[in-house]
């Protein structure tokens, strides 16, 4: 926490710096994991668990979009990423609770099953740290 957000403007404010880099890396990894997983699931056996596989695809799209907005940077992207992180957190909590309460609805697991236990709970932790970082990077600049 030595330096606050550096003013490295080239038209757009950079979000990928300091802790933001670690965030982008984790979102990138989750994107690759979720996209390849859902593509494989949908191509090979969509019929066996349509709900689980559709939710995996939704998760994949959300991760990919957040990664893109973080890399792109700028104020609008920051706001979009913030909204998506909130949606992601809501998704993890809802789907996670759903899979715990009614496992029979999910013959196959999704990325967000049991709050992302199969991914060492990264899916729950990531949106929280993401929102903290995105809020802080606005405060660091103090203007829109």
């Amino acid at each position: 926490m030595a330096e606050s957000a550096t003013e490295d403007h080239k038209g757009r404010a950079r979000l990928v710096q300091g802790p933001g880099l670690l965030l982008v890396w984790l979102y990138g990894v989750m994107s690759v994991g979720a996209v390849s997983r859902s593509v494989y699931q949908i191509l090979t056996d969509y019929g066996s668990a349509p709900l689980a596989h559709t939710l995996s695809a939704v998760a994949a799209v959300v991760y990919a979009f957040i990664t893109y907005t973080l890399v792109r940077g700028g104020e609008r992207a920051r706001k979009a990423a913030l909204v998506c992180c909130a949606a992601e957190l809501a998704g993890v909590l809802i789907v996670g609770t759903w899979t715990v309460v009614e496992p029979s609805a999910f013959p196959d697991s999704t990325v967000w099953s049991a709050y992302g236990m199969g991914y060492i709970f990264i899916p729950v932790l990531l949106p929280v740290t993401g929102m903290l970082w995105l809020r802080r990077s606005r405060q660091g600049r103090g203007k829109s």
């Binding site: 330096e3 710096q17 300091g18 802790p19 933001g20 880099l21 670690l22 890396w25 984790l26 990894v29």
Partner: peptide
């Protein structure tokens, strides 16, 4: 590209 502790943290995460 990230010559701070956060570059190291990213490699550790990788």
């Amino acid at each position: 590209a990230e010559r701070t502790r956060w570059g190291s943290a990213t490699v550790a995460a990788g």
